[in-house]
Design a protein around this nucleic acid. Structure first.
Lengths: 254, 254
DNA sequence: CACGTTTTGTTAAAAATATTCATAAAATGT
DNA sequence: ACATTTTATGAATATTTTTAACAAAACGTG
């Protein structure tokens, strides 16, 4: 059955990124290497992969590096961020108006968000783009001047825009955090904007990976007790957890 | 001089996308094919290209297919659109406030725009993204509800946003055109928004490839004599050109 | 079932690539 | 400035991979 074999090969290479002819012939002992070759050729014609000496590489895999191109820079600690995003999705209720802050962790959150009827408002153009790929959610982009480092809108027009939006729950991101100073970011405009979102939202969820902990930034847009839920990755130390609980007894740490 | 040669090879492959070893040895007769091979190997290690039988393909080139991923669908007639974009760039003056309408032709325009100090306002998130890759222009994104088919913002909030922006020159796109009905688009919200941009701008440039000619859409956002410059590709018929001139004597057709 | 078509296997030849080694040039240290 | 080391290159050879051509098998169809 040639078709199902080709499909298997396709799947294999898409998940592995690159595969050698030797491995393929080992995996498909029922056919000759020549057949596998021809399969690869067929897949190459379809633009699925490109053949290289000794095997083939998946075009998708190559594009993975670019997939996140629209987030401008390579994203680090993707595993941590994904972990956080998966946990955060639980807090998004369908039919509600949610705000998603600009940021790389929140970008993962947007990716993980199921395709349901949320009303999403965001100030990140990469997040708006990501959400636009889904069929159901209504995507509302906050306008304003785009800052090139993080693709987020801010400024007075953003503020005006925000005034016209209601937010049930805000999923926020930060660049730095200490228990004393709270959640910080690096730019004044953004800071003001984030601060207003936090004030405005009925419920606030902070997505923060542990690389942000004990890192200071110029501006604080939110203190610990502004926040209802703090979602971090598994490597948050118990001491820090305790300290957070002491300062903000009502916070839920996930 | 090994380094400059490797750089040349890199540039060559980045502009051509794919190159054969034969061609490379022809282009670099001063070194042996073995050396070229080793150069390719070096570039492969850097992730610039991947070697295939008989030559190499540029990773960038492969990504080009995905580059336009963020425009959601494959772009057709890219050559026409590029031609138009190149011509349109002439009309963008540095230091001015320009508006770029959402659309695939205008996306090319955004790509072609040189990296200078424009003040750009746009309602397309893909266009805002594209512009954010450039260092100089100030990018101002119009907020609003994002429509998923063309990644553009529209709605009452967009309107409010537009009220706060001044536009020297607007580069517009349309989905259909007939001389009688003028420039048309498919959605009411977009239509209203585009219409307001046209009203507001001091100068209006329409980017329209000939596939749009004699195609009707539900809504008209601009008539012929609203427009100052009409930029099309080379395959606009002379009859149509004449008819346009008759109806709008002051229009400049490029 | 006989026929044409498509898929697959076998093999040999061709092509491309890798390896090795020798040499020349450049960089480095003293 | 000289010697030493490193690096780049070319040539020859060996290895691997790919292609091509043809035969056999499987498949579908009237």
């Amino acid at each position: 059955m040639n078709h199902s074999r080709i499909l298997s090969i396709k799947r294999l290479i898409e998940e592995r990124g690159r595969i050698s002819l030797n491995e393929l012939t080992r995996r498909f002992p029922e056919v000759s290497s020549m057949t596998v070759r021809r399969d690869l050729q067929a897949l190459e014609n379809e633009g699925i992969l490109i053949r290289v000496r000794g095997g083939a590489v998946s075009v998708k895999e190559l594009n993975k590096n670019v997939e996140d191109m629209y987030s401008q820079r390579a994203i680090s600690n993707t595993e941590l961020k994904k972990e956080i995003a998966v946990k955060a999705v639980e807090f998004a209720e369908r039919g509600h108006s949610i705000f998603i802050d600009s940021g790389s962790t929140t970008l993962f959150f947007a990716k993980e968000l199921p395709d349901l009827n949320y009303y999403v408002t965001t100030n990140g153009i990469n997040i708006a783009f990501e959400l636009s790929r889904k069929a159901m959610p209504v995507v509302n982009m906050i306008g304003g001047v785009i800052s090139k480092n993080n693709l987020s809108a801010s400024g007075s027009l953003s503020q005006m825009f925000l005034d016209n939006v209601n937010v049930d729950i805000a999923f926020m991101a930060c660049s730095g955090f200490t228990p004393e100073n709270g959640f910080m970011c690096g730019h004044m405009n953004e800071n003001e904007f984030k601060n207003n979102v936090v004030k405005k939202a009925r419920k606030r969820v902070m997505l923060m990976d542990t690389t942000k902990v004990n890192r200071s930034m110029p501006f604080t847009f939110s203190t610990l007790d502004d926040i209802d839920v703090l979602i971090t990755d598994s490597s948050l130390s118990n001491e820090m957890k305790q300290e957070i609980k002491n300062r903000a007894p009502n916070i839920l740490i996930v």
